[in-house]
Amino acid sequence: MADKILPKDKIPGFIDALQKQFVVVAPVERTDAPAEFKEVAPGDNLILDGSQMMMPPKDYLLPRYETLLKVSARPGEVEVQPVVPENKPRVMLGMWLPDAQAIQVLDRVFLDGKFKDPYYAARRENTTLVAVMPAEMRWSWFCASTDDVEKWKPNVDAIMYDLGDRFYIEVTSPKGEAVVEWDGLSAPSSDDVENKNRLWEQFKSHNVLPFSDGKFYERLAWDHPIWAEIAQKCIGCGVCSYMCPSCSCFDIQDEVCGTCIERYRCRDTCQFEEFTLMGSGHNPRPDQLPRSRQRLMHKFKYQHEQYGVVGCTGCGRCVELCPVNVDIRDVLNKVCAEREPEPTT
């Protein structure tokens, strides 16, 4: 597969060329806030080098708020109308590599198995994923601790390595070929290849933490004292899961407005009390301890058992943004240091 060089001053031309074939989705700069994945419109300032905190790409694929169907009722007439987004060829650019891998986790939830989610599928199926490898590793990343990152490459279609004044576009799947068709791109020199490889090696060795032995999911224990320790300081907000690129929990609500009904899907998280609150008033996770435990056990143990992928890809957003500095890297190190592996059930 032919890798290409994209000089940074040619980015506008590159985007224009892509837009002739695809709907281009990329992180768009906002006031005082992390960039957000949006369909690129004229005048948008794109942040493609992955150097800043950005909203997770799931915000585009699984929007924070999405109408599922609308019902309109007039006397003697009820009309139900599903609102499924159009399935168009799309390219998503500028996401961190761990974010791209996190989409694998979302795919398992929304595309695998008996039910395929038509809303997610419409945005996802025809989408080419182009990840970015920033020039400098973020301090909070611990991707290589969660998985063998070499396995991630085929899960994206191309990777853009930031080499200073240029991007090295590595095509990692046949689908990715379409991204490098533009004739404004040039062939890489041997220096470029070397720099790209160096960046990859840097990524592979960045923050490989003590817990990482490829079997840590077997060591996570339900009754570990650390859950109580976290629960004591956790304030029960949703920052970790709402900013997480792989957290996929949602709520579905109906809203009545005069003669119409809107059914919509919005974010929800296991960290909230209402998440498990039953109509009867019973709550199987009555306090913070089981809630804090659930998030980590789900990512690192249950999802691995269920889908064979680790639910966390080490993007570090929760590490950076947790209001009380609960650092999941520390938690895993502590849990895994003290336990012998338990046989998986």
């Binding site: 006031t31 029960g236 949703g238 209001p323």
Partner: peptide
């Protein structure tokens, strides 16, 4: 309008 349109309703402000 600009500020509130960014809100993701994580309720961190309320919880802290």
């Amino acid at each position: 309008s600009e500020q509130f349109s960014k809100c993701i309703r994580c309720y961190a402000c309320r919880q802290i």
